[in-house]
Amino acid sequence: MLLAAPRFALPETVGEALSALAERPDAVVVAGGTEVMPDLLWRVRTAAGFVSLRRVGALRGTSRDGDELVVGAGTPVAALVDAEAGALAAAARSLGTPLVRTEATIGGNVVSALPYRNMLPALLALDARLELTSDTGRRTVAFDGFTTAPGVTRLGEGELLTAVRLPTRPCFSDYVKIGRRNAQYVATVSAAVVSRNGAVRLAFGNAGPVPLRSDAVDVVATALLDGRAGPDDLRAAVADAVDPPEDTVASAAYRRHALGVLATRLVVRAQVDAGLGS
């Protein structure tokens, strides 16, 4: 433990972090701080203490475990900008700003669980799994379904997200997002694609209360990939599947429209990658 105070802990190991959290059950777990600090400023969150994961070395960095890439939850997003999975790299490269990416962590992005967060559609499309660690051990769950509502996850009491595991089987993957300026913006909507062995898996950000994917969309997307369906079919399928928010940034109608466009463009990129398209 580098530093401990009644309402603050700066552990160096996962074990220390878990016990620090057990001793301060009301504390907010803070990794990079890039979300927590503005939240405190804007009073959308209060904190009864901090347990900081910043100095837990074991949570930073990536490794291989069989056919999975294991990304420590405390790995800054900046470390992923050249990731092999195109979707992961693209989502990382367009997150926040260069000065934020060095601090924002993949774990923080997942646990914050807001539907517009950059990494989430990429992780969903890539079929990521999450490693959750507590005093009683470690469990691994699918990222799909981990978020249950905006800002709410299945992370248990006293449990830490310690790693994100991604399949390394070869695939084409990509990620796109749109907003109201050309850099440093929150996604109005976003989308990610994974295309592997002729099957397409799409995922969407800010298309509903949680990161969203749908078998029905993927069936049409796969059909579009091999020419059995047209772009309009995919757009219609996406429009049916999504339930985007209406707010002062954009209307739900625009978001629904744009999600269809993004889906189609991503499948076309997968087509080109597969040598199927022009």
């Binding site: 700066l10 701080g33 890039t34 900081s52």
Partner: peptide, 16 residues
């Protein structure tokens, strides 16, 4: 070192 926004960093997490 690397450049970051000092407004986003809880200072105590940079102890030492």
């Amino acid at each position: 070192g690397h450049v970051l926004c000092s407004c986003l960093l809880p200072a105590a997490t940079a102890a030492g």
